[in-house]
């Protein structure tokens, strides 16, 4: 099936991501920030779908929007929001932040301007049907060792969290 209105959806989703990203850092209420972050993550998942990576999109929705953000909200809801809203922001690092943002933006502009020479001019020819299988082949074939090491690291993190949370073991 031919994609419909690709350009429109790309700009729409990108604008949504940027807008909600701005909302994440400008809202004073942490719950509103978290909800804006969820919108940004979902728009990103849709962008993955447009890149013919349905598996990555599905995992993005399940893990980030459905799992991690729920835990974020879970913790934020327990905080007294009236108090945290009145508090002054204590790390005044906006000069450094601005500088790094400008540097990152400049990098993006540079890459965009040089894109013809940096990346080979080759259209995406991956059929939609095989994405999940290809991810599996890469993870459990070519990069098996790195993948298992990463899972071991996560296990260590879990054990560390349990040790820190539990008073008596």
């Amino acid at each position: 099936m031919q994609p419909i209105a690709t350009t429109f959806f790309f700009y729409f989703l990108s604008a949504l991501t940027v807008l909600s990203g701005v909302l994440v850092i400008t809202r004073k209420n942490p719950v509103h920030s978290a909800l804006a972050l969820i919108v940004a993550l979902l728009a990103q998942a849709a962008l993955y779908l447009m890149l013919y990576a349905p598996f990555v999109a599905g995992v993005q929705i399940i893990l980030y929007a459905g799992g991690i953000m729920v835990l974020f909200l879970f913790v934020i809801m327990l905080v007294n929001i009236e108090q945290s809203q009145r508090e002054e922001q204590f790390n005044k690092q906006w000069i450094i932040g601005l500088a790094s943002a400008i540097a990152l933006g400049a990098l993006f502009v540079f890459v965009f301007a040089k894109s013809k020479s940096l990346f080979p001019d080759r259209g995406i020819s991956m059929p939609e049907g095989s994405n999940t299988q290809q991810v599996a082949v890469l993870l459990y074939g070519n990069y098996m060792f790195a993948f298992e090491i990463a899972s071991l690291l996560l296990l260590v993190a879990i054990i560390g969290a349990v040790v820190m949370a539990k008073k008596r073991i």
Binding site: A57, I61, I62, A65, G66
Partner: peptide, 22 residues
């Protein structure tokens, strides 16, 4: 019919908890 059918169903239905929390 999606290539990621089951994943899509689980993912989208896991979003409903966000509505409940909100």
């Amino acid at each position: 019919d999606m290539n990621i059918g089951v994943l899509f169903m689980l993912g989208v239905s896991s979003l409903s908890v966000l509505g409940i929390v909100m």
